[in-house]
Design a protein around this nucleic acid. Structure first.
Lengths: 124, 124
DNA sequence: GCATATAGTATCAAGAAGGATACTGTCATG
DNA sequence: CATGACAGTATCCTTCTTGATACTATATGC
């Protein structure tokens, strides 16, 4: 999904599928969104939940998703800095997608890796 | 989604999301799968439906999805060659994901591009 | 005989994505 | 005074993905 990202929506049938995927593709985006479903998070909170994502990449992905209107970024004029990330209304509309992905993954991840521990969001 | 593809399923919570995405990410996979929802297709039929996908890329994506067990490849010992691609049972379980993506895309693509013509699959 | 269709492969090159590491400034804590 | 937390930046480097193009073999139709 390299080139397409924010440019090519030339709309062959099926491209709405691609359009949607284009927004959540990017190595960390889907995970970040998934975590944000649980509520607002600060930069380093996300970092801790999304292990081995470097700050550079995290900033990167967050900025892209902000530009796409999926999340909001709220800066508090404080020191030390405080920045909160949350799903926008648009971002929240992706929940069915995220959930479909999660459900599929939970059902089939045995094929590719080891199963997960319990995740609180599954109760929702 | 470069590195992860078929290697890293180290399962932080949320990684089942990533696992699922890892399989349909790849510039053309989701579109190909979407088209295969309508039924079996031959190589060049897919090519024609997925415009500007070079044969190299198409082979590529099809082979990866075959390796992931999402599609089946049936070769007829004929000349000229005939090869049919179809969703496997596993592939069919991805329909909810594909549909969620399509629904979201249809609802929101206005934000990023122009709307689509009618697609027969929407009637299903 | 020539073009066309089939299902690809081979080779080369470009560009983008991602990773590693170090660094910023200010405040509170020890 | 030194350290850590916060939210990032900056720089460099490697790898992956993707694109463009040309090519394969055989059978059929013209």
């Amino acid at each position: 999904m390299a080139k397409a990202r924010h440019s090519r929506f030339d709309c062959t049938p099926g491209c709405s599928v691609e359009a949607a995927i284009g927004l959540i593709d990017g190595k960390w985006k889907s995970i970040i969104l998934w975590h944000l479903l649980s509520g607002t998070l600060r930069f380093n909170e996300i970092r801790r939940q999304v292990e081995n994502c470097t700050p550079r990449m995290l900033t990167n992905q967050l900025r892209e998703m902000e530009a796409d209107g999926l999340i909001t970024r709220k800066v508090y004029a404080q020191v030390p800095p405080k920045v909160e990330y949350a799903l926008s209304d648009l971002g929240r509309t992706m929940e069915p997608i995220l959930r479909a992905l999660k459900d599929w993954g939970d059902a089939n991840i045995g094929l590719y890796g080891k199963p997960l521990g319990h995740d609180p969001r599954d109760a929702a």
